[in-house]
């Protein structure tokens, strides 16, 4: 069952007068997201991530393409979609003099919540986002971390089946970001919420996401699990060695070595498969009389995939 089934979404922004400038933000992106999945949309600045999220949340109308969100047609049933999804942005902003509890209650009312149901939901979300002690603080007096937590609390006010998070940990201290990530993971675990998030933090994407969609210049370049992407890009594994007496020269001609760097006794070999090549590498070094003092095998990180795709 799909939460998102989008085909060939395209969007061009036209600005300026009298000379119109065109920015092709999306150039035909197709994306499917299974219900209950956490999918990360990654890409360099200006890649079209926020545009894609904005289209999928009905905030922006695409020039071309079609999509079904939670079984509803994006163009024909935006109201039905809005009832069942929500969104939090890392740079979210709310009315400056409303208090934390009033902001959550205001958005709750927009979803038709009232009376005891609204009061209970506000309490639940204040607890979830650990905002209880700050409930009566006006928005403009909150720290960045508290604002982010409020944005997350607000985005859960209608108990969305599909949640979009645009840079949810942007600008947060590491400890706050870790707690926020734990809360995001808990959402899927406890409620089965489908989550689509954008982030510039690769560790965050690797930790949270089942699948990654990589966008660049308005096009979807790759889509799959982090492992699938690493394999597909063929970045290879890295064997890092510290050797005495001899080194890189002894390894010349070995099969499976994609790249070699050597400096001050440190040798880094990028190989097609560390599992397959490690034995041969060590044997060749041993035969040449080199002494291996340190050894590390690294699989490629999502960050390496990002750098490779963003090139």
């Amino acid at each position: 069952m799909l939460a998102i089934d989008a085909h060939d979404l395209a969007k061009t922004f036209r600005t300026g007068w009298p000379r119109r400038r065109e920015t092709h933000a999306l150039r035909g992106v197709s994306l499917t997201v299974a219900r209950g999945a956490i999918v990360g949309v990654l890409g360099p600045n200006g890649a079209g991530k926020t545009t894609l999220l904005s289209i999928l949340t009905t905030l922006l109308v695409p020039d071309r393409g079609r999509a079904t969100i939670l079984g509803h047609d994006l163009a024909r049933e935006p109201g039905a979609i809005r009832r069942r999804l929500n969104m939090a942005s890392g740079n979210a902003s709310f009315l400056w003099s409303l208090r934390v509890e009033e902001i959550i209650a205001f958005y709750g009312r927009l979803y038709g919540l009232g009376g005891r149901a609204l009061a209970a939901r506000v309490e639940e979300l204040l607890g979830f986002a650990e905002l209880g002690p700050h409930r009566r603080v006006p928005y403009n007096e909150l720290s960045t971390g508290l604002k982010q937590r409020l944005a997350l609390a607000k985005s859960l006010v209608n108990q969305p089946e599909l949640l979009f998070l645009d840079e949810p940990t942007l600008g947060l201290d590491p400890d706050v970001a870790i707690r926020l990530r734990a809360q995001i993971a808990a959402l899927r675990r406890r409620r089965g919420t489908t989550i689509v998030l954008t982030t510039h933090y690769m560790r965050e994407a690797e930790e949270l996401c089942d699948e990654i969609a990589f966008i660049k210049s308005g096009r979807l370049l790759a889509h799959g699990s982090p492992e699938e992407l690493k394999r597909a890009i063929r970045l290879g594994d890295v064997i890092a060695l510290r050797v005495e007496a001899g080194g890189a020269a002894a390894l010349a001609g070995l099969p499976g070595i994609l790249r070699t760097t050597a400096e001050d006794g440190r040798v880094e070999l990028t190989v097609d498969s560390a599992q397959k090549r490690l034995g041969e590498v060590l044997q060749r070094l041993h035969e040449s009389g080199a002494v291996v003092r340190d050894l590390e095998v690294r699989e490629p990180q999502l960050e390496d995939v990002f750098i490779e795709l963003a090139k």
Binding site: R82, F94, L95, Y111
Partner: peptide
């Protein structure tokens, strides 16, 4: 205007209003 000044416009129109 409140939403323009507070830059919170998209949040209310994300809701089914």
């Amino acid at each position: 205007l409140y939403d323009v000044w507070s830059k919170s416009m998209k949040h209310q129109f994300l809701a089914p209003i």
